[in-house]
């Protein structure tokens, strides 16, 4: 039997269906308190559920609430450390670094092999190395499929700022992928030790 819209039961059904995705998003936005963040977002969502006009848009609506909740938390904490810019990485190229360092000398597809060494949890750890201001737009754009204008609205910054942060965040992500692979010994496991 269909659950009537606008009821507590329909909110619970919507939220339940979105839990894995909300949790996945939260775990990429924040290091330690993802579950707590989802819980707060669910509460906010429940309180404003009457304002949701299109039931089909429930998933993106809940994800937007989660991002807003996260943004508000960051503002409260006033984490000035997050404002520290990443070291200059404009000219860093992961592609060229892999080619020069040649971590898999017996491979004809060294670049793809490098990417294939990254499990989902590794990608998450790389993302969490990035400052908040770069990580959030990157996650929303490339993993959640939000348009840049929507990201600007959610983050409360001008579109140009989002584009600049995406630009810098992508290059920083490249650099951190390489640093993470080196620091965790992934490259050794991938073949360098087998020389």
């Amino acid at each position: 039997m269909a659950v009537p819209q606008g009821t507590k039961e329909s909110f619970q059904a919507l939220a339940r269906s979105q839990l894995p995705r909300l949790l996945a998003l939260a775990r990429r936005l924040t290091r330690d308190d993802a579950e707590d963040l989802v819980q707060e977002a669910l509460l906010r969502g429940y309180r404003s559920y009457a304002g949701l006009k299109d039931a089909q848009a429930g998933g993106p609506w809940l994800r937007a609430i989660l991002v807003n909740t996260h943004r508000d938390r960051m503002r409260k904490r006033a984490r000035s450390a997050e404002e520290i810019p990443v070291a200059d990485c404009e000219e860093f190229s992961l592609y060229r670094t892999i080619a020069e360092e040649d971590p898999f000398p017996y491979s004809d597809t060294v670049h793809l092999d490098f990417l294939h060494t990254f499990a989902k949890e590794d990608v998450r750890h790389v993302l969490l190395r990035l400052p908040e201001i770069y990580r959030v737009p990157l996650v929303l754009c490339h993993m959640e499929g939000f348009a840049t204008k929507e990201i600007a609205r959610l983050c409360g910054v001008p579109l140009g700022t989002v584009l600049a942060r995406l630009h810098r965040g992508r290059k920083a992500f490249e650099r951190e992928m390489w640093a993470y692979a080196e620091e965790t010994g992934m490259l050794k496991r991938g073949g360098r030790d087998e020389r």
Partner: peptide, 11 residues
Amino acid sequence: LLASQTIDDSR
């Protein structure tokens, strides 16, 4: 690679 990270059911 980034786009393929969407769902995480490991928790």
